[in-house]
Amino acid sequence: MKLILEVITPIKVILKEEVDEITIPTVNGEISILPGHIDLFTKITRGEMIIRRNNKIEPFAIMGGFLEVTKNHVNILADYAAHVNDIEIARVEQAKERAEKAMKEKDKELGYEQLQDDIRRAALQLKIAKKHKSHSRTS
């Protein structure tokens, strides 16, 4: 028995496939979902989502959204999600610097909350990418 996982963000459908296990941060702490899980509805927070498929581990950066489990179907609606291999450290660092600079100069157009969001996202991407980048090629 496997879980059918769908991860959707406003920008694109990140993945739609069968997996063995999902570990994800929620508002009540990190949870792992295995096949046969009770129906569940919860909110997810910023952090690292790990998918296990055929004993291979795939890390993702994920931010805010909702998680629903219904009869082995897992639907994740996230504000943002990206596979660790899709995160480019150099670009993220640039984006973070830009956002921080804009924040210092009090960019009215983007607004404080938007910038803070950008910085948080960049920090998360960096953390997860740096943690996994070294051995992600082999896994």
Binding site: P10, T26, V27, N28, I38, D39, L40, F41, T42, K43, F66
Partner: peptide, 26 residues
């Protein structure tokens, strides 16, 4: 069907519906 809500329906529903509203408009 038994569904688990974490933390609780009362906490989740307003957030979900507000988000739903915003997304439909967007």
């Amino acid at each position: 069907a038994v569904t688990l809500f974490e933390p609780s329906v009362g906490d989740l529903l307003p957030d979900l519906l507000q988000h739903y509203l915003e997304m439909v408009i967007y």
